[in-house]
Write a protein that binds this DNA or RNA. Sequence first.
DNA 1: ACCCAGGGTCATA
DNA 2: TATGACCATGGG
Length: 220
Amino acid sequence: MEIREVFSRLDAAHDFSGWHWQAETSPEYVCISAILVQHTNWANVEQAIHRLRAAWAFSLATIALIGEETLAELVRPAGTPLVKARRLRALADAALEAGGIERLLALPTDELRARLLATHGIGPETADAIVLNAANRAVFQVDAYAKRIFRRLGMGPEHDAYDAWQRWFETQTAPDPETYRRQHGLIVLHGKATCRPKPICASCCLVELCETGRGTAAAG
DNA sequence: ACCCAGGGTCATA
DNA sequence: TATGACCATGGG
């Protein structure tokens, strides 16, 4: 099985044009929404963004100034408000420390990623979301759907570690931010559509390739 | 009513 | 190093 075949099918089955992180999306929008979307639906993130905008708090500079309890109230619709308020604050502080978000994002890729990972509340996926979408560097953003989808196809690295998955994807696709952005978006769209913990194989564009769909009826 | 969500931190063994 | 509790709201 070729990875190209998988993405070709995902491309045909899902509409990437409405994806919220595109090349022209502003860096601050990416940074803030990358925190808000952790373990949360995008619809909830949009509500939180509306509230931040309405309060003139949709910027890292403002986030660094307002109280965490106020911030938590604003992002409440995104869930885990106290957690996300603290994480947004940590990211805003990291940006300030670097001399502004633009300066931070202008650092070499490895250093940028290391600084993000050293920031409270930013793990590998959130760091790569920012490196890829805000700094426009060619890193593959791995998520739970990527692992689930490709595992069910019988593909992927031996071990489940984030870095192993990232290397696995990056060694099979030429490094290009646009390509990686699209691949990640398609994976999420597909995960939401059919590749749930309880898969919906009947409507899946990968059903003939997938062990779960091919083998038994439904769960697996 | 139930299942699910694009994650990360922390405590524990 | 690995696993599980925890965070918590909203959509299908």
